[in-house]
Design a binder for these strands. Sequence first.
DNA 1: GAGGCGTGCGTGAGCGTTCACGGCGATCTG
DNA 2: CAGATCGCCGTGAACGCTCACGCACGCCTC
Lengths: 343, 343
Amino acid sequence: MSAVPTGERQPAVPEDRVTINDVARLAGVSRQTVTRAMNDMSGISAETKARVLRAAARLEYRPNRAARAMVRGPGTTLGLVIRSLWNPFFAEIAESVIDAVHARQWNLHLSYVGSNGRDALSVVRDMAPEVDAIVGYLPPDISRELPSFTGPLIQLDISGTTGQDAGFRFDLTHDLGLVVQRFADSGRRGVAMIDGSVHGGPSVRAPIFTELAREAGVLDDRVGVTLTDESPEGASAAVREMLDRSPDVDGLFVFNDVMALGVMHELTRHGLTIPDDVAVIAMDGIRLGAYSSPPLTTVDLDPRGLGHAAVAAVGDVLAGDAPRRGRGAQWQRRHALLVRQSG
Amino acid sequence: MSAVPTGERQPAVPEDRVTINDVARLAGVSRQTVTRAMNDMSGISAETKARVLRAAARLEYRPNRAARAMVRGPGTTLGLVIRSLWNPFFAEIAESVIDAVHARQWNLHLSYVGSNGRDALSVVRDMAPEVDAIVGYLPPDISRELPSFTGPLIQLDISGTTGQDAGFRFDLTHDLGLVVQRFADSGRRGVAMIDGSVHGGPSVRAPIFTELAREAGVLDDRVGVTLTDESPEGASAAVREMLDRSPDVDGLFVFNDVMALGVMHELTRHGLTIPDDVAVIAMDGIRLGAYSSPPLTTVDLDPRGLGHAAVAAVGDVLAGDAPRRGRGAQWQRRHALLVRQSG
DNA sequence: GAGGCGTGCGTGAGCGTTCACGGCGATCTG
DNA sequence: CAGATCGCCGTGAACGCTCACGCACGCCTC
């Protein structure tokens, strides 16, 4: 018995694929001449080139990318894994990663973990054999689940974990300090938080925020943190539930911008005005936040900068200029508060 | 002199790449045994497998994707070109395309045309040699500029063009009829349009809308159509300009949802209430439209359905079940009005 | 008119991997 | 105990393309 793969395999190789030899034969030239014609190389006459291109078109010839990549060198492919694309925060990160990757002549594989019911591990497992490096929002220490993947793996947010993952660590004490300060400055005394569930559990932002808010004397201790889905729908529901429990909340810190949209929607529906009755501050800095009503006050996480930085980090690791794991591969970022009208 | 390429080339092939033979030598086995270990195949003992995997890890061996693809068959790669990702409409399309492509075990190349200053033609030119099919928002008859690309090319919106491009044609007379009807039913008499500039010029939606609106007697002829950037910023500016010219507009049809966000922002800033003073209706059906204030009335273009349909169409063409160009490769779509509070 | 040069084209080799097949001991079977 | 079977492993070939050469021919130069 011959060795067989355990899992099923690709649809096998098609019979009818047309190769460079077919084109050469039809055009009455050699392989090399076809190559010259297809790749705009010198050393070929105009007539011959035209004849070859005509033959190629007639056969619907498409050069085999794998064969070409093999001899030319494989290039670099980056894998990006984010949570949903419909959330503009991740979409903006994706945009900047696309830009940065294109500038380096790399390829990109994009996937997302979200409403499609796929979990991060299975997405990354599928992606790993196809890419040279991975960037994304992934569970801590995921590289332990991927022993066969030896390329660089960079987390877009490792705040809160103490592991050895490479990635970006947000200075939450600084960032959330700004938020708390803002609530205090505008005289709020009953601030609560709507948290978004990340890998099934609460976020790291919640305990840090509540501690800072309590210290500053602005926290509504009766309400505290409400945990819900990372979506406007979830946020709306959380607000309804919260308003039932405690009608006198006067400030809300929301996990992210799209959730804040759901929050403001729900507050308005209940006849509350923002920010007079309830101030709303969120985190992300999406472009559309400037056009909500009222415009959203938020921590500007600078998604475009984050994407660029991540690609640059991958480049450094690949070039051997940065360590692959551990403290030396963790970069801290601190952000500014984008003050608009909502809080 | 030997033939040389005209343009510059990839960074050439690196010297230090580690191949399957290096692993085999270190583990003291043959190529084939390394293959068996790496691909979880049968016909290998547990000890040997472990030894091989250890050797592979030590050398940081990564199988060459090109070589593998060459013998296994190349698979299918789809290219998707959209205008911006930060606009949730396109992002939602991208999500559904990712899902559909993943379900078929295809690969995806995603690129966008937008604020990065790249035009559609150059993006597609870069992409064409790397993919087997292209889906996107592209200028009419773009395939004429790509003689070397012989794969299927499917436009996500060919409304208005009369060419031979394959793609989806929106039944704008139907869809915009719904919008006009809605304005008429709510007693509007001074409706104008904020149009988004697509490939440098006005959209196809503008003339059809104005004609229908005029016929229904709801059009504000003094204002008509204001053309601007496809962005909330552009839309805000357009509203300012329009309000100067004619203060008694009572209904606004906006090119798309994100522009409508800018429009509503600006109207609110001018002290106008929506929909009492001005009704706003847009087109797209993004998820976040339900959470603006007021929630947005819009034509539901069903971005997820569109993405799935496009991938299915590519599959049909590739399988030979659908024509590649011409009338038979054009599919019509008509949509429903999603009535919320803004109009 | 012998040598040099440039243009246009073809031939062998090799990229790294997997597939088909074959070999060789050890175990099982009648 | 001869023959069949099974587990484990290795060897040639091939995938389609590009690169480095080399060859033939026409033209120019001295």
